[in-house]
Structure formats: C-alpha cells, structure tokens
C-alpha cells in the first residue's frame, strides 16, 4: 500500500523542521517556516489528508507568515529619537555613531529606526511618553556661544534648534570640540547591551534618570524586545 517514495517525502518534514529550529535570526526563520509549510502541505496531501494540506497551505504558510512578519517587524526594533537637520559636522558625528550602533544591534537581530523630532523638548517628551526607546543628542562644543545661537531661532529654526545647551552632566565639560553623542535610554536591557558592547569612545550612555552606573541585572530576556 505505502510506496517507497512516501517514506522519502516524509523524511523531508523533520529535515526542514530541524532547519527551522536551528535558525537564530527571526527573518531567516520566517523564510524557513515557509519552506516547512510547503513541505508539510506536500506530506499531508500525499498521506491523504487533503483538507489538512489545504489548511496548512492557507493558514500555516500564508496567514501565519504574514502575521509573524508584521509582528517581528514591529517588535524587534530599537527606535532612536534624533533631532532633524543637524549641521554637517554633527551629521558626520552622528553617522560615525550609527555604524557601530547598528553593528551591535545586528548581533541581537534588532533593527535601528531613527525617528526625527524638531526640537529637544519634543525629543525629551517622546522619551517620557515611551514613543522611542532612546534619544540621541549630538551636543554642541562648549566653546560656542549658545545664546547667540538661540537668538537665531527666529531666522533659521531648524539650524538653531540643535543648539540648546545640554543638560549639565560634567562629562563633556572638558571643552573638547567633538564631544561624543549622548544617548539616553529608557530600556534597561538596551542600556546593558550598549554599555557592554559599544566602544566607549563612540557615545556616552545614560538611563532616563541620568543614571550612569549599571543597573541591577534585569531579569528580562532578550526576546522581550
């Protein structure tokens, strides 16, 4: 009754399932999940379960992949608030920050999404309102005269808006012209990842309440983010 090819086809199912479970990246796993769905539909159809095969193809492959893709896309992301239109020097500074940041986040399969805000108050508010996971400020060199900058707000708003004096924190008061960008993070686990893996020279990290010391070890798993 059972032909030899049926056994061969059935062996494909655990093979693709094994491929699925050893994937670490969520997107790769989604693609492999599609392969598993196709193979499973084949196996079910050959074993005579036409209705099960149809359900697997429609729900298991199509619907669940679509829903998972949307879910993974909206959850595995770090949203970083930035200010719009920084000056060219700040732009290069920011780019030099973003490259290592992306590299670190890629290791955790997180994606970096930049959200631009018009001025620092909105940035701070977005962080408080939990719209973003962290904000990044490229502070001005302290040698610059800030009041003059502020007065130019009327003329060129987006130029001057980046020039609001930074919060007093002490680290950048040495007057070095290129103070590293400051990242304020709301999520403890992100803070922990970034403090351990980001090269220290690229950015100063702090948590929302200005804390610079490592927090108590959070009991949150990585998947939570």
């Amino acid at each position: 009754m059972m032909d030899s090819y049926v056994y061969v086809i059935m062996a494909l199912l655990p093979l693709s399932a094994l491929m699925l479970v050893i994937q670490t990246s969520p997107y790769q796993a989604l693609v492999i999940r599609g392969i598993l769905g196709a193979v499973a539909a084949l196996v079910y159809a050959i074993l005579g379960g036409a209705d099960v095969a149809l359900t697997e193809a429609l729900v298991g492959t199509m619907l669940s992949i679509t829903l998972f893709a949307v879910a993974v896309r909206s959850s595995l992301v770090m949203r970083l608030g930035v200010l719009v239109a920084p000056e060219p020097s700040q732009e290069s500074l920011r780019q030099s920050l973003l490259a290592p940041l992306r590299m670190v986040l890629n290791r955790y399969h997180l994606r970096l999404e930049l959200v631009a805000y018009p001025h620092p108050e909105a940035l701070q508010q977005a962080l408080q309102a939990k719209e973003v996971h962290g904000i990044c400020r490229v502070d001005f060199p302290l040698g610059e005269e800030t009041p003059a900058r502020v007065s130019s707000t009327v003329i060129a708003p987006d130029l001057a808006l980046t020039a609001i004096p930074s919060l007093p924190s002490g680290a950048e008061s040495d007057g070095s012209p290129a103070a590293p960008p400051r990242i304020t993070l709301r999520v403890p686990r992100l803070y922990e990842i970034l403090t351990t893996e980001l090269p220290p020279a690229t950015a100063q990290l702090q948590t929302l309440n200005g804390d610079r010391t490592p927090l108590t070890p959070p009991l949150i798993l990585m998947e939570k983010y």
Binding site: G34, A38, I46, A50, L54, M62, A69
Partner: peptide
C-alpha cells in the same frame, strides 16, 4: 482527484505569501 484540487489551490494561493514576505 481530491488531492489534485488541493494541489491546484495551493499552487494558485501559496505564492501570495511569498510576495508579501
């Protein structure tokens, strides 16, 4: 022929998920 109908349906619907992905 029941399996055949399922095959045709999978063929005509299955690729949609691929495009969305």
């Amino acid at each position: 022929w029941m399996i055949g109908v399922v095959g045709v349906l999978i063929l005509s619907v299955g690729n949609a998920a691929l495009m969305l992905l």
